[in-house]
């Protein structure tokens, strides 16, 4: 469904991502893991059209995404929930959700989808008329996900969904992602909480300093990184996380 080949992204003189190739198949839950500054968020931003790659190809459902605006990419069915969640604080919860369904204006089954989002996240129904800026971090994350779901994305990208949440909320967040995956949503996930991530994903890619250093199923990754860690004295902080099962 999504295929990236030889991607390179630069910020001025700094290369954030170099020669990255990865793919996500339909219905898969795939994670990008790695330490802070490894280039995970940049990769997602490049897919969503927020940053422009310097080289490489990004194809989604057979169409090239490079050179397209972020609104056009969203139109193709790619939804990104950024790290800061991108809640509009001056709008109400309901208005935020309405913008999530912007691309589906006037469709008949929209009411049903609203109802299902409110069923999944009852707190949003409760706070529908409240200003979104007054929500707690966990509630904002739920709003961001609910809003993204209303666009019925073909590919859902989540950037650090567990960041800054309370431990119980983190649990709920991982459950939720697992749930969405089971419902058939294709998901690309960026996380620093490597242990929890590997418990739910189909496959993962490990990024270190903008490069791909390992990839595969969670078992493969755990094994490979463990061996590499033993031989090379650890590749990066994130690699250590994987072998020791630390949470990031």
């Amino acid at each position: 469904m999504l295929a990236i080949n030889g991607l390179q992204v630069r910020y001025g003189a700094i290369v954030a991502v170099r020669d990255l190739s990865l793919s996500v198949a339909e219905g898969e839950l795939v994670a990008l893991v790695g330490a802070n500054g490894a280039g995970k968020s940049t990769t997602m931003a490049a897919i969503a059209g927020v940053v422009k790659p310097s080289t490489g190809t990004i194809t989604f459902l057979g169409q090239s995404l490079r050179g397209r605006s972020s609104e056009a990419i969203a139109g193709l069915g790619v939804a990104l929930i950024p790290e800061d969640r991108g809640i509009f604080p001056s709008l109400t919860v309901e208005q935020n959700l309405r913008l999530g369904a912007y691309l589906r204006r006037g469709q008949k089954d929209l009411g049903k989808d609203f109802a299902s989002v409110y069923r999944r996240f009852p707190i949003l129904a409760e706070r529908a008329k409240q200003g979104a800026g007054t929500l707690s971090g966990g509630e904002q994350q739920q709003l961001a996900i609910g809003r993204a779901l209303l666009s019925r994305p073909k590919l859902l990208m989540l950037d650090e969904p567990s960041l800054g949440l309370s431990p119980t909320m983190v649990d709920r967040m991982f459950e939720l992602i697992d749930e969405l995956h089971r419902d058939g949503t294709t998901i690309l996930l960026v996380e620093q909480n490597v242990r929890r991530t590997l418990e739910i994903v189909d496959r993962a890619y490990l990024l270190t300093n903008g490069r791909l250093t390992a990839s595969g199923t969670p078992e493969q990754l755990r094994r490979e990184v463990d061996i590499a860690g033993a031989y090379m004295g650890g590749r990066a902080a994130a690699a250590g996380d994987i072998s020791e099962g630390r949470t990031g």
Partner: peptide, 13 residues
Amino acid sequence: AAADDFRMLRLLG
């Protein structure tokens, strides 16, 4: 919403 966060608005299509 655009006055709040234009980048996010574009991400919503």
